[in-house]
Design a protein around this nucleic acid. Structure first.
Lengths: 337, 337
DNA sequence: TTGTACGCGTTATCAC
DNA sequence: GTGATAACGCGTACAA
């Protein structure tokens, strides 16, 4: 059961290592091996189920065909979609993905990044660099890393990143509401300590001048708070929607939007007749709510694809300088708005 | 930018490699290095930001602190929860996770497994071995692998696995319905080509003798079919629920259950008064539907934990023989049943 | 055409 | 206490 090595093959086939290499993995140097010898070597390799040791191979400077992925310990719905997209593309190109989870702080993130490098990854994608108040540390640790790509714009420019325009997603939603004749749209959003939420808020404020009274925050620090949030929906309908006389709401999480639909129905308000509702993420449930939920699709497949492509470009080293791309969310229009 | 190696440290500190190793990574051999020398070496290492090359380290037989995870190209909700749980535990124990996606066939799965081994992983967890009709191949490729753990019972015994009792999950749901006085429970389930669904079906049939007329299959081969499935819900209410005079339904996917709730409301049927509904997966949306959805919680955190612990046991080689554990789903009781 | 020798970075075993 | 030296498995010049 001990791993069969190059030498085992060579001994078994009665040749030396170099010949085996030429037949099995070489390729680049002119392959001048007698066909019958080559065939014999291949037969032995197959019989012994030879598998080259990738760590030894990496030691000689060859690519591991491996990329690293920095993720936060709590994977959001969006990040899961990005992760699966990147993983799929990597697999299609013969790459593996090594995940490094980080523990909610900058130090842990940098440590994880370093460990990925120690493993000899070809490049790294970061989905977990949004640590409010640590922008300076982030820049010090991660600026000028050629084989690193960020999902979401970080606070500095010397890097590769995919700019996810959360602000434009909200803008599209609000514009859609206004075009449908809504006069007083509001927004129900999560705690704006994180970059994406702040961008969403900015997108809303850009179109709604009197935004202060039109925004309500659902503080969902703990992911297990859903029960409490669901219980709070009737109060949100009374105080926020009826209180502010809103005729439309953009909700930054689909499940909250579904909860809002339920509370509106209980209160006897019609959607979209009395109040239009737009969710965010375009999760599966949007098709099954009543009415079916219009939702912002953050286009995470496009994000994942852009991340992968940028990483490959930087790994293959075509051209220099840092790269950036932009992904703009789309509106998946259904019945609720 | 070329990686700084052990030799660089040794040269800079004016000692030889062995001394550096004893100070920086050794630990096991009695540390007989003069304190001032040790301090000097540590200082140089810190200044040069030395990071040992893990591939070279692996070559000498030491653990990579790395585990492999075999996943299917389409990650189910359950598998995502298992993945994140395993990843979290691994990170807590200083391990990394390498993901290998497989392309829906046995050959690809085995190839992915082999590549993980080539990378020198300490062990492998498989979430993707459910290929109907390929049981013999599965056994041939994966039986008697000491450092491999399956999530879900495979078709043979010479392996480590966590037995996820999908059947008992359904049983608990049906028992709950019967205890509440339901007389004619039905089941809305996905295509029973996969093991988990077949187990669910078995669990249902064990309690419901006349199951044939009480089961309806939603064929969700394509994940993008939700729109069609949502549109079919009214017909399911008419033909299946009213047609079979059911007073309760267990639905094997929460989003379908939410769609059913919507269709029942449109038809003027009360939940749980006229028809009780139980979903499956205990997704976030269960808290936000109306009524809030009772759902089977497959206890994926327990599954992930069991997988991790079994893998660590087999890696650390305590005792011999194959291990198995059982995880039983729980019922998360809310309003709909 | 095939074989030899060396380097990759680390660890372990001996001498000193 | 410290310094040579030999593995580990593979790739690659270069020599035969």
């Amino acid at each position: 059961m001990a791993n069969v090595t190059l030498i085992d093959i060579a001994r078994e086939a009665g040749v030396c290592k170099a010949t085996v290499v030429k037949v099995l993995s070489g390729g680049d140097t002119n392959i001048r091996v007698r066909p019958e010898t080559a065939e014999r070597i291949r037969a032995v390799a197959a019989r012994l189920q030879y598998r080259p040791n990738l760590n030894a191979r990496a030691l000689t400077g060859r690519s591991m065909h491996l990329i690293g992925l920095l993720v936060d310990s709590v994977l959001s719905y969006s990040n899961i979609q990005i992760l699966t997209t990147v993983e799929r593309l990597a697999a299609q190109h013969g790459y593996r993905v090594m995940i490094a989870e980080t523990h909610n702080d900058m130090a842990g993130l940098h440590e994880s990044y370093q460990i990925l490098l120690q493993h000899g990854v070809d490049g790294v994608i970061s989905l977990a660099h949004d640590y409010p108040g640590e922008e300076a540390t982030l820049q010090r640790c991660f600026a000028n890393q050629p084989h690193l790509v960020f999902a979401g714009r970080p606070s500095f420019d010397e890097c590769n990143y995919v700019d996810i325009r959360y602000d434009l997603g909200i803008r599209k939603a609000v514009e859609h509401l206004l075009a449908r004749g809504c006069r007083r749209p509001g927004m129900l959003m999560e705690n704006p300590i994180y970059g994406p939420v702040r961008l969403q808020e900015a997108g809303f404020r850009a179109l709604v001048p009197e935004a202060d009274s039109r925004i309500r925050v659902i503080d969902s620090a703990d992911p297990g708070d859903d029960e409490r949030h669901a219980a709070a929906m009737p109060a949100i309908v009374e105080e926020f929607i009826l209180g502010q006389q809103l005729d439309a709401v953009v909700v930054t999480t689909d499940v909250f939007a579904v909860g809002l639909l339920s509370a509106l129905a209980v209160r006897g308000l019609r959607v979209p007749g009395d109040v239009a509702v737009i969710g965010n993420n375009n999760e599966r449930v949007c098709n099954f709510s009543m009415p079916r939920l219009t939702s912002i699709d953050e286009n995470n497949v496009a994000v994942g694809t852009a991340l992968w492509e940028m990483l490959m470009e930087s790994v293959e080293g075509t051209g220099s300088g840092f790269r950036r791309r932009e992904v703009i969310p789309q509106l998946a229009i259904r019945e609720s708005a």
